[in-house]
Simulated scan of single mutants.
Amino acid sequence: MRKQRRVMARDKRHVTPWWRDARWYRGLFLVLLGGVVMLAATLINSGLNHLRDPQTLPIRQVSIDGDLLYLQRAQIEQALVPFVSGGFLAVDLVRIEQAARRLDWVYAARVSREWPDRLVVHITEQVPVAYWGDMALLNRYGELFAPAAIPDDLGLPRLAGRSVQAQELMQRFVLVQEKLGQVDASAVGLREDARGAWVIELTNGTQILMGRDSDAARLERLLRVYPALVAQRSEPIALIDLRYTNGMAVAWGDARREVAP
Rank of each mutant, 00 (worst) to 15 (best):
D92R: 13
D92W: 10
R95A: 11
I96R: 01
Q98G: 00
A99M: 06
A99S: 05
A100Q: 09
A100Y: 06
R101V: 12
R101H: 00
R101Y: 03
R102C: 02
R102T: 11
D104P: 07
D104C: 05
W105M: 04
W105F: 08
V106S: 03
V106K: 04
V106E: 01
V106M: 10
Y107Q: 14
A108E: 15
A108T: 15
A109D: 05
R110Y: 15
R110N: 15
V111F: 14
V111L: 13
S112Q: 15
E114T: 15
E114C: 08
W115E: 13
P116L: 03
P116Q: 04
P116K: 00
D117F: 03
D117T: 09
R118N: 14
R118Y: 10
R118M: 14
R118E: 14
L119C: 10
L119Y: 01
V120L: 14
V120K: 14
I123K: 02
I123L: 10
T124C: 00
T124A: 08
T124M: 02
T124V: 12
T124Q: 13
E125G: 00
Q126T: 00
Q126P: 09
V127D: 13
P128K: 12
A130F: 02
W132Y: 00
W132V: 06
D134W: 09
M135D: 10
M135T: 12
M135E: 14
A136K: 08
L137A: 07
L137R: 01
L137H: 06
L137Q: 01
L138Q: 08
L138C: 03
N139E: 07
N139M: 06
R140L: 12
Y141D: 15
G142S: 00
G142F: 05
L144F: 08
F145I: 05
P147A: 03
P147G: 01
P147I: 00
I150K: 06
D152L: 02
D152N: 04
D152C: 04
L154W: 07
L154I: 12
G155N: 12
G155Q: 09
G155E: 12
L156P: 11
P157D: 06
R158K: 13
L159K: 02
A160R: 10
A160T: 04
G161R: 07
G161Y: 05
G161D: 04
G161Q: 00
G161W: 01
R162P: 01
S163K: 11
S163Y: 00
V164A: 10
V164N: 10
Q165W: 13
A166W: 06
A166C: 09
A166L: 03
Q167E: 15
Q167N: 11
E168Q: 09
E168W: 12
L169V: 11
L169D: 08
M170A: 11
Q171H: 09
R172E: 14
R172C: 09
V174Y: 14
V174L: 15
